[in-house]
Design a protein around this nucleic acid. Structure first.
Lengths: 182, 182
DNA sequence: GCGCGCTGCGCAATCCGTTGTATAAGCACT
DNA sequence: AGTGCTTATACAACGGATTGCGCAGCGCGC
C-alpha cells in the first residue's frame, strides 16, 4: 500500500487538488504508479483523517470549488519512515504483452495496428519527457536531481519500448507476407 | 481482468499444474503479468467451472499428487475473442521509483544500496533471458516467434533499467560527496 | 439548441489481490 | 532431532482497486 506515499511525494513540492493529482498520475508519475481519481479522493480523505495532509477550500468562479491539499509534518514523518524500509517488488499488468505472447492465435494485422497505435502514444510521451528533461537541465540539474532522474527513467523506458516495437513490426511484417490478411 | 487470459496463453503450449504456472509467473511471464499461487489456483478453479480448462489427476510418489490442466476448445475460443479486442492500458506499481522521486527526503546511501541490490537482480534476469533467447534462436526463430519477441522485450527492458541505474549511481555518488552519510 | 469535453468532487458495489494459515511428504543440512 | 526448503494444493479474511453512477457549471463546435 503506497499510493499514499506517492501522493505524499507529489505534495512535497506543492499543494494540489485531487484533480491536479489525478492529472499527474495520468502523466509523469503514471509511468511508475497509476491510480484513478476515485482512488485518489478516497486516499486523500484517509490521509486527512490521519492528519498527514491538510486542505483549504478555494472557491472558484466558472469552475467548481476545489480543495488544495498540502502535506503536514506528520505526513513528512510518515514519508521518511517509509523511505527507510526497502521497497516492495515492482508489479506490472501489461495486457498487450500477454497478447503478443499468445500471438499464434491472433490476427497479425490487428496486432500490428495496435502496435502502431501504442507506438504513437509512446513517441508522444517520449517527446514530453525529453522537453521536460531539458527544462529541468536548464534550471539546474542539481536542484532538480530527483525529478530529473525520474524523467530520465521515463525517457529510457520509452526508447526501449519503441526499439522493441520496431523489432516486432519487422518480424510480423515478414511473417504475414503471403498469409491471408483477414 | 486478464489473469485468466495469461493462464490460457501458457496452457496453449502444454498442460501444466498450478504449481508449474506459478513458477512461470515468477519467471518469464512475471515480467509482463504477475500473480501469486493463491490467485492462480483460484482462477484455475473458476476456469474449470466455466469449462475453459480441464484437468486430470496425476498421483505421484514422494510428492503430493497434482492436477495437470489443459485448455479446452471453449478456452481457446475465449482466448481468440479476447485477442481481438484492444488491450487495456498497462498498469505498474513500482515502489522503488516512487522512492527515487521523493529522494530529497531519503538517505542517499540507503538508496544507493537498494539500487545495487536491484541491479544485481536485473543482471541475473538479463542473463537468463539472453540464454533463453539464444536457445530459441538456435531452435528456429520462426517457429518460436512469439516467445522470442516476448523474451526480447524482457532483454531490452533489463538493459534500459541497468543503463538508468548507472546514471543514478553516478548522480548520487556525486551528490553525496561531502554530505553526512547518516 | 444540443451534445461533448473539461474541471471538480464524491458514494456504493463488486471484484481483484495480498496475507495468513493449513496440510503433507521428502530431502538436505546442522 | 530440529530447522528449513521444495513440491503441491487450498480456504478465509481483509484491504486495495476498478467500475458504475451522480452532481454541477462553463466553454466549444455543429
Amino acid at each position: 500500500m503506497s499510493l499514499r506515499h506517492a501522493i505524499l511525494v507529489l505534495l512535497q513540492d506543492q499543494e494540489a487538488s485531487g484533480y491536479d493529482l489525478a492529472r499527474e498520475f495520468a502523466n509523469s508519475i503514471g509511468l511508475v504508479w497509476n491510480a484513478t481519481h476515485q482512488q485518489i479522493y478516497l486516499e486523500l480523505g484517509k490521509l486527512n483523517e490521519q492528519h498527514m495532509v491538510s486542505f483549504r477550500h478555494v472557491p472558484q468562479e466558472g469552475k467548481p470549488d476545489k480543495k488544495l491539499y498540502s502535506i503536514t509534518e506528520d505526513g513528512r514523518q510518515e514519508l521518511i519512515r517509509w523511505l527507510k524500509k526497502p521497497a516492495g517488488p515492482a508489479r506490472i499488468r501489461d495486457a498487450f504483452m500477454v497478447k503478443v505472447a499468445g500471438g499464434q492465435l491472433a490476427d497479425s494485422g490487428a496486432l500490428l495496428g495496435e502496435l502502431e497505435q501504442l507506438s504513437k502514444q509512446r513517441r508522444e510521451r517520449l517527446a514530453t519527457f525529453e522537453a521536460l528533461a531539458q527544462r529541468l537541465d536548464e534550471q539546474g540539474r542539481e536542484e532538480n536531481l530527483y525529478s530529473y532522474l525520474t524523467v530520465r527513467r521515463g525517457i529510457l523506458d520509452q526508447r526501449a519500448w519503441l526499439q522493441w516495437a520496431e523489432e516486432v513490426r519487422q518480424a510480423l511484417e515478414h511473417a504475414s507476407v503471403g498469409l491471408p490478411t483477414s
